[in-house]
Design a protein around this nucleic acid. Structure first.
Lengths: 130, 130
DNA sequence: CTGTATGCAAAACTTTTGCAATCAA
DNA sequence: TTGATTGCAAAAGTTTTGCATACAG
């Protein structure tokens, strides 16, 4: 049965993640939490994130070229990652057709990972060129 | 200018990766290479993979719940990952519409990550149920 | 010859685990 | 009370780095 318990740590971890819009890695989230709550340990952050992922409270996001990131927004959506600075933003869900050849797999889901230039980097690039 | 040099190690690493269709992690690729060429070091495998990724000779594939994987197939394509056994297969590219709201980003590309059941796991599951 | 590339060993990280103490229910 | 949860420290695993040597061009 293993009833789950509510602890202050869990509340702080989820709150902090939801407040951060940057899709932090576990380590980044720990750093942020540690600033305000130095007593919360790294292992608790990792353990609680794993639990919350299982429970569907948070989403693990794996984008190229970085450790796993976490997202407190579990409503179906996609991500776009700035190829210049690495920032990650949420963008709306888009319906995608299934490919004709699925290599024998039965498709159950998908996500789209967009890459692009974030607003800041667009400006920076425009300035550099122009 | 830093001219790049051709070495036997580079040849072996690329050959082995292309021959493996399993989208191995750097560690898995090293194990396979090490079996036939025990003298090639782990650091060379990591270094060469990084270089080849920069040169566009191989692709780094990041799918949820595993270390980065490498793919010797650099022709534009998508991946599907079995949610039961973790196997990864190539599937054809699919055109995707851009979302209306791009969070201010300028979209330059995208990939679709499908999840599903591989042929073997479909059979296994059918047997389990039926 | 020159300086890139390699192998080795150590370092740097990230994530996981064992365990005694703590505390939510 | 009692067993899930925590913090600590150590372990495990992956990737990077410093450096002397080897070798491609």
């Amino acid at each position: 049965m293993t009833a789950k318990r509510n602890t202050p740590q869990k509340g702080i971890i989820l709150d902090t993640l939801c407040r951060m819009r940057s899709h932090p890695t576990a380590g980044e989230l720990y750093e942020e939490i540690h600033r305000l709550h130095p007593s919360i340990s790294r292992s608790t952050v990792y353990r609680v994130l794993g639990q919350m992922e299982e429970d569907g409270l948070v989403m693990r996001v794996c984008l190229m070229g970085s450790d796993d990131r976490f997202d407190g927004n579990v409503i179906r959506h996609n991500h776009i990652r700035c190829c210049r600075c690495g920032a990650v933003a949420d963008i709306p869900w888009v319906e995608v057709a299934h490919p004709c050849d699925t290599a024998g797999y039965e498709i159950t889901g998908y996500t789209v990972e967009y890459t692009g230039l974030c607003p800041a980097c667009r400006k920076a690039q425009a300035k550099q060129i122009g």
